[in-house]
């Protein structure tokens, strides 16, 4: 309850601190992070290809919005559907292998989708991206204005968070955690492990797809990078700095990551260099992420106060 209150307060305060576009991006990326964390944190599957589903959903829904003027709910539905379907295709090939093979396969199939988007210029616009994506109104209310769109995104984020909380606390969520803890034992107890992994993969794909559509409508364009490996890496990074051990970790990670990257990337074209340095520093010195650092800080403080 306290956490929820904290989140609602941050939703309300955030647009006062940063531009609404960045604030919107933070919650979109948080949905994306929630999706990855179902795999990474709850099932123990390290997917390095999440932009496949994010990008595919953005392209398909964006194209339908642009050329057929579908309404906003249809766009969201298409995004979720495309995300889930592409995750089903990719996941089917990936979940049969585990560990390092799994990671490499998610990346390789990400590259497949990337190169299709790169070369299919008549649809995707290739390197130039797919511009001109409209933002239709919601039940007669216009969300053209950035603060209204921010409110719409925040609402969808809360809905996603609620849904994800339900999923991880459901029996399904417990089975996924059992697979994470001990795959062989989960199999021995009688669970069809590959099938549950695939299910988790599809659910994560659906959430990633939702994030992808919201992203396309936020900027009115689907850039080629949306389906590229850097986005896949960024969401892993954001989730890890937030801490993959909790449901809320990716939210904090998204906040830190988007804020930092938006402030730095506008200042220096070579900012991926700094991003790389940040990755290395976090890995070598700050493993466990912000949440763990925070917890450690509090235990340290309270131990000092009592002691």
């Amino acid at each position: 309850m306290r956490t929820l209150l904290l989140i609602v307060i941050s939703i309300l305060l955030l647009p006062l601190v940063v531009r609404p576009a960045i604030a919107s991006e933070i919650w979109i990326f948080a949905i994306f992070g929630l999706a990855l964390n179902l795999l990474l944190g709850y099932t123990g599957m390290l997917s390095f290809g999440q932009s496949t589903f994010f990008g595919s959903a953005a392209y398909v829904a964006g194209w339908l919005l642009k050329h057929y003027g579908i309404n906003v709910f249809a766009a969201l539905g298409v995004g979720v559907g495309v995300g889930a379907l592409s995750a089903l295709l990719v996941g089917y090939l990936c979940v049969q292998r585990s560990g390092l093979y799994f990671i490499m396969l998610t990346f390789a199939l990400n590259q497949l989708f990337y190169f299709i988007a790169y070369q299919w210029t008549s649809v995707t616009g290739g390197e130039d991206g797919m511009p001109g994506i409209p933002r239709p109104s919601v039940l007669g209310l216009s969300i053209q204005e950035s603060y209204w769109y921010y409110a719409f995104i925040s609402l969808l984020f809360l809905l996603s968070l609620w849904a994800m909380k339900r999923i991880v606390e459901s029996p399904l969520g417990k089975i996924l955690q059992a697979i994470r803890e001990n795959e062989v034992r989960a199999e021995a107890v009688g669970y069809d492990v590959p099938r549950f992994k695939l299910l988790a993969f599809v659910i994560a794909g659906a959430f990633s797809g939702l994030a992808g559509v919201l992203y396309a409508m936020l900027f009115g364009i689907v850039p080629l990078e949306a389906i590229g490996f850097v986005v896949s890496g960024n969401v892993v990074f954001a989730t890890l700095i937030g801490g993959s051990g909790s449901l809320y970790g990716p939210i904090i990670g998204s906040f830190v990551f988007i804020w930092l990257s938006e402030s730095v990337s506008t200042m220096w074209a070579r900012w991926p260099l700094l991003l790389g340095v940040a990755f290395v520093i976090v890995v070598l010195f700050l493993r466990g992420g912000v949440v763990e650092a925070w917890t450690r800080f509090w235990t340290w403080r309270s131990s000092k106060q009592t002691g």
Binding site: L40, L46, F48, G99, L100, I103, G233, V236, F237, L240, S244, R270, P272, L273, L275, G276, V277, A278, F279, V280, V282, V283, L284, R287
Partner: peptide, 25 residues
Amino acid sequence: RRLYAAGHDYQLLFTFGLALILNEL
């Protein structure tokens, strides 16, 4: 060398970070 005990996620992030650094350099 310092990451052998650290799980694939951090190893991945480290090598990916290196890739970004080398690419930008």
